[in-house]
Write a protein that binds this DNA or RNA. Structure first.
Lengths: 249, 249
DNA sequence: CAAATTCCCGCACAAAAACGCAGAAACACG
DNA sequence: CGTGTTTCTGCGTTTTTGTGCGGGAATTTG
């Protein structure tokens, strides 16, 4: 088994179960605990997991710990949210993924807007529920504790049988060669279904995620209609993407 | 169980109940009280809780003290929750409605319990998600804003196609003549489906709701297997119900 | 004041991590 | 192709960390 393979497996396990023990990983993959420990170290250095004595935890575990990091990019996300909202009009059916950027968008929705929002993200749903005129449809299935969204075949089937006007994706990584990528297999399945079920696909992404990639492929750039970042639309960083036929806002 | 995990659990419990006892935590997680004490120390050093003799308090508690009657009804619900939990064992599939009593039950679930909880109540789901070993299935559909649960044909269909071991219903009104009744038509539909899809139906109800009724009929008493209140099972108020063949706990 | 908890301190033991090292495999390159 | 280099992995050994236990001190409680 290759090192990268092993690390991808570990990352997947962490994202799936929120925690892993070095000992059980070692037994799973049949390598020494030392090797596991080194892998965990590397992944922790890359910021993908949190190393603790005895194993590792998913990043969502310590979300409460470090609110400072969130505040940092908040103003950027507000900017993105504003742009995204300009695409929404009354009566629309809107699919959204999860993620903090989507959350910010949900909070910023104008109160007089009448539309239907569909999502499997618990956090997003909570925000939508606070709005007076928004109809909320919740996608049901098993809840992934790591990503706080519903995942699984039921959820995917439900999404596939609808056709939304527009779909907003919180994007973890976007790159010219790799397209849209992510690090949680189950989330990827969901996002793929959402893309297929929407007439228009909009990616929300803060600039630091532009030109980065993650282990799991979601889709090619050609499936994306629009990209929204906090940067002005003529920023040189975005030029390649508008050249690729994506509308940049 | 990892140390960080344990501390996260403790922190959650403190924030939830405003106080924790070292002794009960020790029993919950199956570690020595000494270890709990060390954890409380660390959390207190980080300023997350306030350590006191015998346990710890949440930070909010020190400033605000809430009205006595609130604590009073809370203790009733805690009692009910304790009894309800005694019916749950590992590996069960459990359907639950919404309501504050169900919420209290969700908060009181012992951390080592491994079971699958199915619900359409957003608040209940949020509680279940915080538990380390519980699998959560969310029933999807339109969200009813006033009851904060998913309602509609999809939700009902989904419930009907499962068979749970046990179903806990937060009960708004129970009466010898009228059976179980409620005041929200959509919620009633859901509860009916839940009753049909469960091998055992348990009603959780605080005593003041015994012998009251609401406009919309859910089901006859005969469909109910068990009734849990904060009263002792031999309380005369409950006699008619046990006579009617309902097990009273 | 007395009994019962709870806490603190040191210790012991086990599990995990860190460290250094060495063999094996992959790689670079003339 | 051969050789030197880098990377990866596993194995002892030593350190560190986490946890439980016993006994005595401190505290709560009646």
């Amino acid at each position: 088994m290759l090192k990268k393979e092993r690390q991808a497996y570990i990352l997947h396990q962490v994202n799936l179960h929120n925690k892993v023990l070095s000992s059980s990983l070692s037994a799973d993959i049949n390598v020494s605990e030392d090797t596991i420990r080194r892998d965990l170290m590397e992944l922790a250095d890359e910021g993908k997991i949190i190393k603790v004595h005895g194993g590792a935890l998913s990043h969502s575990f310590s979300q409460v710990h470090f609110p400072a990091n969130e505040v940092y990019s908040l103003s950027q996300k507000k900017r993105i949210a504003q742009k995204a909202i300009s695409l929404i009009s009354n009566g629309m059916f809107i699919l959204t993924s999860g993620g903090t950027t989507i959350l910010e968008m949900a909070r910023t929705l104008p109160p007089q807007l009448k539309a239907t929002f569909i999502s499997g993200s618990i956090a997003a749903i909570l925000e939508y529920m606070n709005h007076p005129n928004i109809e909320v449809i919740l996608i049901g299935d098993r809840i992934s504790k790591n990503s706080k969204i519903t995942v699984g075949p039921e959820a995917i089937a439900k999404i596939k049988q609808m056709k939304a006007d527009i779909c907003f994706l919180g994007t973890n990584a976007i790159d010219l060669n790799h397209g849209i990528t992510d690090n949680d297999w189950e989330v990827v399945q969901l996002k793929r279904a959402m893309i297929e079920s929407s007439q228009k696909v909009v990616c929300l992404s803060i600039a630091e995620k532009i030109n980065t990639f993650q282990p799991i492929h979601i889709c090619e750039l050609s499936k994306i209609d629009m990209l929204i970042t906090e940067l002005p639309s003529d920023d040189p960083l975005l030029k390649p993407y508008s050249d690729a036929g994506i509308k940049v806002l």
